[in-house]
């Protein structure tokens, strides 16, 4: 591999990793703070993409559709927490998996009724539609760089809110001892509602900003969901920092796993087995640290 190609692949890996972080951070947040396993997380990624498509069509401007989509996502999140999620806090993880799996089916059906089953697309906003030439025949869309910037911004914002603000303090306290926080006069119900809405909005936001470079189609969240779980497991359940590191690791391993040629003893390993690289990485890390990179000791 030429050095320039290597650098571009590095960029591809980091860029993919950052987008993964944006999707999976919501999942790890909801699990770490509320103890809820949300299987329907990928569906909200899809909902975000469809929101971007329908709102851009209705409003005619991606930049107005984005905040509108965020507001709608927050409202959906709060409604869902009030309607279904809050009954799960004192229940076993199995109930959570069952209920959020049911949510997947409901969301898929609603998507089919509301938006249909066709493949849709969102145009890249004009201001970011340029490409930067990298080599004589390949260029890099500015929009992809912008996605990375948004992901970094969200990561910084999450760190600041959780570590430096009063709300963040309540969130952290609620995560470690729900009853104690409640008896200190903090309405933990509201805190949880905010956290769940934030988690859902992060997934939807990822779907919205990915919509112009991706396509918008039924089931697009399913693949993302599996990788998100790998991110959360590698990074450590509930650790946002871990999710960031794990996302970047997966982005790089997945990217290079597809293009590096590797043979052991005449048996072609890569790229033939590239679909397994991410899972092999997960297995290796779990052997070394069963709690994940930044998870609480089990």
């Amino acid at each position: 591999m030429e050095f320039s190609t290597f650098l571009i692949q590095l960029l591809n890996g980091v860029q993919y990793g950052l987008l993964l972080f944006l999707v999976s951070s919501g999942l790890t947040l909801v699990f770490g703070i509320m103890g809820i396993i949300n299987i329907a997380h990928g569906s909200f990624y899809m909902v975000g993409a469809y929101l971007a498509w329908s709102l851009t069509g209705a409003i005619g401007n991606f930049w107005l559709a984005l905040p509108a989509g965020i507001v709608i996502s927050v409202l959906i999140g709060m409604l869902l927490e009030w309607l279904v999620i809050r009954w799960l806090y004192h229940r076993d993880h199995l109930y959570q998996v069952l209920l959020t799996y049911g949510l997947i089916l409901v969301v898929e059906e609603l998507r089919s009724v509301l938006w249909g089953d066709d493949v849709r697309g969102v145009d890249i906003p004009k201001i970011l539609s340029a490409s930067i030439p990298l080599t004589e025949n390949q260029s890099y869309p500015v929009y992809r760089l912008w996605i990375s910037a948004v992901c970094l911004l969200v990561a910084g914002l999450m760190y600041w809110v959780i570590q430096k603000t009063r709300l963040g303090m309540m969130i952290r306290a609620g995560a470690s001892n729900r009853e104690m926080v409640q008896s200190l006069g903090i309405n933990i119900q509201v805190v949880y509602r905010v956290v769940f809405a934030a988690g859902l909005t992060l997934a939807a936001l990822a779907g919205m900003i990915a919509a112009p470079v991706s396509a918008v189609f039924p089931g697009m969240g399913n693949h993302v969901l599996i990788v998100c779980f790998v991110v959360v497991v590698i990074g450590g359940m509930g650790s946002v920092k871990g999710a960031l590191i794990a996302s970047l690791l997966i982005g790089l391993v997945d990217t290079f796993g597809k293009v590096v040629t590797l043979a052991i003893g005449g048996f072609k390993v890569l790229p033939e087995l590239s679909s397994m690289t991410v899972y092999v990485l997960m297995a290796a890390i779990l052997l070394w640290r069963p709690e994940g990179l930044f998870g609480k000791r089990l």
Binding site: E2, T5, Q9, N12, T135, Q138, F256, K258
Partner: peptide, 10 residues
């Protein structure tokens, strides 16, 4: 697809 597109370009 990004990684494989870079392959094609190379």
């Amino acid at each position: 697809f990004q990684a494989l597109l870079t392959e094609i370009a190379a």
